[in-house]
């Protein structure tokens, strides 16, 4: 019998231990497929953040480095500057990249650092148990915004990809979601492009992926997808936000 579906070679055999229904697994798979399709597993160094995405260290089949909270892009910069011919990517949650790591997220793009960033946005700090993140949307209840995020008090959520897209060194910025098969396919295309941008040495590439957190949102996996569509998508600008002419020509 012909095998029609398997684990991409870009992932190790280790079973994911993310919570049931968490979309990290889908994003991992997409990145793993891209690493395999571009034949760069053996040339790639990934950088893991702190938070749930920190587990990615064990799940990808390429070399991996664990960074301090928020510092993945600075660490990736050091690796890329040491090994300019290798592929370097960071895989970070929204809390990591858009709160404690904001300075690095801005400057890595400003420098046009030739790395790729996959930002997984589930609107909360997941690992620590569902606290408010810079990406938590207005009214959203978290353990540190128990009455719902009051934007008058703490400000509105940050749309990081939109901010990064304004910087010259960022040549490709996309915001995707993994809520439907169609969007999953679209996300994969974007992720692939973000790695191709690096292969050609064009500049910095960021792909944000709207994701879910059933455990901390307190919803079933299916309801989570609906909540993402109804509450997150209107807040975050979606699609390919920025593409230079060189990237379009890919």
């Amino acid at each position: 019998m012909q095998k029609v579906f398997g684990r991409p070679q870009g992932l190790t055999d280790l079973p994911f231990h993310y919570c049931p229904g968490c979309t990290h697994g889908i994003v991992h798979r997409l990145v793993g497929e891209v690493l395999e399709e571009l034949d760069i597993i053996g040339d790639t160094i990934g950088v893991a953040p702190v938070g749930c995405a920190g587990f990615s260290l064990d799940f990808f089949a390429c070399d991996f480095v664990g960074a301090a909270h928020g510092r993945a892009q600075a660490v990736a910069t050091g690796i890329k500057r040491a090994l300019p011919d290798k592929i370097v990517f960071t895989y970070q949650g929204d809390g990591d990249i858009a709160a404690i790591g904001t300075a690095h997220a801005i400057h890595v793009a400003a420098r046009g650092e030739k790395i790729t960033t996959i930002m997984v946005n589930n609107a909360v700090f997941g690992m620590t148990g569902g606290q408010m993140a810079p990406t938590t949307i207005g009214g959203q209840v978290t353990t540190t915004s128990p009455y719902g995020r009051d934007c008058a008090l703490v400000g509105a959520p940050i749309d990081l990809p939109k901010t990064v897209a304004t910087l010259n060194g960022a040549v490709y910025v996309a915001a995707c979601a993994v809520d439907t098969p169609k969007n999953i396919l679209q996300a994969k295309k974007c992720i692939k492009k973000a790695f191709q941008v690096q292969q050609r040495g064009l500049g910095y590439a960021l792909v944000s992926v709207l994701s879910t957190c059933p455990t901390n949102w307190g919803l079933s996996p299916v309801d989570c997808l609906k909540w993402l569509q109804e509450n997150m998508m209107p807040v975050y600008e979606m699609g390919e936000l920025k593409m230079t002419e060189e990237v379009k020509a890919l």
Binding site: V65, I79, A82, L83
Partner: peptide, 13 residues
């Protein structure tokens, strides 16, 4: 902070 973490990255290589 960025500088020392860049060192960290470079040192891993």
């Amino acid at each position: 902070v960025a500088s020392i973490n860049m060192c960290y990255g470079a040192a891993t290589t």
